[in-house]
Deep mutational scan, measured.
Amino acid sequence: TKVFYNGTYVEFNNPEKAKKYAEKVAKKVGGTFTEKNGQFHVE
């Protein structure tokens, strides 16, 4: 499961961990995250 952010991504074996990371990054940058095709995108 990949989490895309700012033109790069971090890959996780565990979708649950990926979601938590996406939430954390989104919170940090004051943005939101969306799930597309089983991957997370932070905006």
Rank of each mutant, 00 (worst) to 15 (best):
G7L: 05
K19W: 07
E43V: 14
N37H: 08
K2R: 13
K19P: 00
F12G: 00
E23V: 08
K24E: 15
F33C: 13
E16P: 03
A22C: 04
N37E: 09
K27Y: 08
G7N: 09
V25Q: 07
P15A: 12
K19A: 08
P15S: 10
F4D: 00
N37A: 08
G7W: 06
E43M: 14
A18T: 01
T34P: 00
Q39H: 15
Q39K: 04
V29P: 02
V10Q: 07
T8W: 14
P15D: 05
V10T: 09
G30N: 10
F4C: 10
P15K: 15
K27T: 09
A26V: 05
V3D: 00
K17Q: 15
E43W: 15
K19R: 15
V3H: 00
Y9W: 12
N14H: 09
T1F: 15
P15H: 14
E35W: 12
A18E: 01
Y9E: 06
G38C: 08
A26D: 01
Q39D: 15
N13D: 15
E11Q: 11
G7T: 04
K17F: 11
T34K: 10
N13F: 10
N13Y: 09
V29G: 04
E23H: 08
F12M: 03
K2Y: 10
V3M: 03
T1H: 13
E11R: 10
V3S: 00
K36W: 09
T34N: 07
A22L: 02
A18Y: 01
N14Q: 07
F12T: 01
E23S: 08
P15L: 11
E16G: 09
E35T: 07
F12E: 01
G38A: 05
K27G: 07
H41G: 02
F40M: 05
V3E: 00
V10Y: 09
N13H: 10
E43T: 13
F40W: 13
Y21I: 02
T1L: 06
V10F: 09
T32G: 05
H41L: 09
K20F: 08
N14V: 06
V25G: 02
A22F: 02
V29M: 10
F12H: 02
E43D: 09
G7A: 05
H41K: 05
T34Y: 15
K36D: 06
G38P: 00
N6T: 04
Y5E: 02
K20G: 07
F12R: 02
E11P: 05
F4M: 04
Y5R: 03
E23L: 09
G38Y: 04
K36A: 08
T32K: 10
V3K: 00
T34V: 13
E43Y: 15
K36I: 14
E35G: 04
T34Q: 09
N13C: 15
V3R: 00
E16V: 11
K28L: 14
Y21D: 01
V3G: 00
Q39G: 09
V25A: 06
A18N: 00
K27R: 12
G38V: 01
T34C: 15
K24S: 13
F40Y: 13
G31R: 04
K20T: 09
Y21M: 03
A26M: 03
A26G: 03
N37R: 07
Y5L: 07
G31I: 04
K17P: 05
K27P: 01
F40H: 02
E35L: 09
F12N: 00
F4G: 00
E23A: 12
K24D: 12
K17T: 14
Y5V: 08
A26S: 07
V3I: 03
Y21T: 01
K28V: 10
G38M: 04
E43I: 15
N6F: 09
E43S: 13
K24H: 13
E11W: 14
K19I: 07
N14W: 05
K24F: 15
F12D: 00
K36E: 07
P15F: 15
N37K: 07
Y21N: 02
V3L: 02
N14T: 14
V29I: 14
N14G: 06
Y9D: 03
A18L: 00
F33V: 15
N6H: 10
G7C: 14
H41W: 15
N13Q: 13
K28P: 02
K28A: 14
F12I: 03
F40G: 00
V3W: 00
Y5S: 03
F40R: 00
G38I: 01
Y5W: 11
Y9M: 09
P15V: 12
V10H: 07
Y9H: 06
G31C: 07
K28E: 14
V25I: 14
K2E: 01
G7E: 05
G30I: 03
A26E: 01
Q39V: 12
